[in-house]
Amino acid sequence: MPAQSHPRGPSVAFDGVGKRYAGDVRAVDGVTLTIAGGEFVALVGASGSGKSTLLKMVNRLHKPGEGRVSIDGEPVDSVPVHLLRRRIGYVFQNIGLFPHMPVGENVALPLRLRGERYDEARVAELLDLVELPRALAARMPDALSGGQRQRVGVARALAAEPKLILMDEPFGALDPLTRDTLGRAVRKLHDRLGLTTIMVTHDMAEALLLADRILVMAAGEIVADASPHDMLTGKGGAVADTLVAVPREQAHLLSRLERGE
């Protein structure tokens, strides 16, 4: 599964994947689906629906109780876990920058794990990619704003040029404006670098605006699987309709306000 061989990102397949927690709670229940290479997929659902658990089975932060996850047809447990993770970009809500390293070292860490020396030019390139000033490389993470930190998180995830990016509520803790700009930036990177992106979010509007395909999860199962357009036009099924109703209603109200009605 060498990333370089793909002009676009790899495909990801879930085959009868399930996981059960103590007390017989089913976190994920018999999920079978394939995400095509190059897709930007949003995984939407209420908290506790199992969407994060499903996502983290791809980079083995969670282990499925049954079934199998594979990337480009190769089971994820066929390689040592640290090697698997080095080929997958991972961005999550709490960011997890290393507080004892300057921003530049944080960004370059995946390269260091590959045995490369610190490369100032490469770090500058990565900071450009996420639209951060290069001067930030020398700062410590605690001197950055929340939005800047998550941009650093994205830059770190992209450093080793992975073709598959997993994002777990990546913009959950950011203010709406930062959220919107960062969302657009990520989508732009997805297109420019030809990635496969799976993003977990509880915000249907965000999912509709960024993704090519939306998967809705409830009680561990996929209850809807449709493009944003189909979702908005009622082809996603009952659960999807309820979820879509809120942003659609808000959008209508906003445009009415705008028209002065």
Partner: peptide, 25 residues
Amino acid sequence: DPAVIEAADGVGMTARQRLWMVEAP
């Protein structure tokens, strides 16, 4: 911070690398 540990695992550190690069400092 558990997020720091999750990040260390997420970027693909081995247990030993996590200890020396993150936990020890």
